[in-house]
Design a protein around this nucleic acid. Structure first.
Lengths: 129, 129
DNA sequence: GCCGTACTACGAAACTTTTCGTTGAAACTA
DNA sequence: TAGTTTCAACGAAAAGTTTCGTAGTACGGC
């Protein structure tokens, strides 16, 4: 099967990616134990997902003794940006400012977060022009 | 089938919602003609999607003469916020500032857009505390 | 060497999403 | 009114996703 040009994880896949991002390379058992704290999920289900994800190129696998250690193929930020871009196109017609404004409106952002965002905007203003 | 508590359109459904948001209430034929400019899609496919979406409550239908006119049930902004919230949880672990920063980093925002965002943050700062 | 444990591989069932062929009804046309 | 066009309803095939049962393999203890 050829790689899709844009690789978009399914919901179950993304849940596993988040575990790997947070905990670093892990065995199937480790991933499954963490996943199982959220929702009931069998060991073989997690294994199958990791196998599929490795097929797709979302994860890589290293054999360590008798068990396999899985890790993500992409930095968290790269995948987040990809998913955000996708949503931006599909739901916001490409308007980043609309998206940002919705994001800010939705969540009660902390003062610290607002400061971070302000700083980022200031940086972009300087770079840009 | 019971309504899911959070109603999340699939990709194909979202594409149709965008058409309805942009063009207002439309007949199946009108929706299909616009959808077909993006990708080849049969009339009955569009019809079936609109029927499913009406079942789910994503759209509403009014019979106008012999044809039916479909419209969205939710404001564009409401659905956008819902999808954004979903992505925020699933991919960003709930960190709105991370999401916003990725969004700003991704797209070249214009000066005007940056001003809008700055203003929004200022407003929130005043409200919040 | 034999048995139990810990693991992966395989395949398929259950479910969801996407697509469209076929049918029948309504309305318009000559 | 008979033929043609335009439409919605229905059902089901095709494709993709999620789940897990079963089987087989390697390793450690006895």
């Amino acid at each position: 099967m050829a790689k899709r040009s844009v690789l978009k994880p399914t919901d179950a896949e993304l849940a596993i990616l988040r575990i790997l991002w947070n905990h670093g390379p892990s065995t199937v058992r480790q991933v499954n134990e963490i996943a199982a704290t959220d929702r009931p999920i069998g060991y073989t289900t997690t294994l199958k997902l990791l196998q599929i994800m490795t097929d797709k190129g979302l994860t890589v696998r290293e054999e360590m003794g008798r068990s396999h250690v899985y890790a993500t193929s992409h930095e968290e930020e790269v995948m987040q940006r990809r998913l955000l871009d996708d949503l931006l196109e599909r739901a916001f017609g490409g308007s980043a400012s609309k998206l940002v404004m919705q994001a800010l409106a939705t969540r009660p952002t902390s003062t610290r977060e607002r400061d971070e965002i302000r700083r980022l905007i200031a940086e972009k203003s300087n770079e840009g022009e």
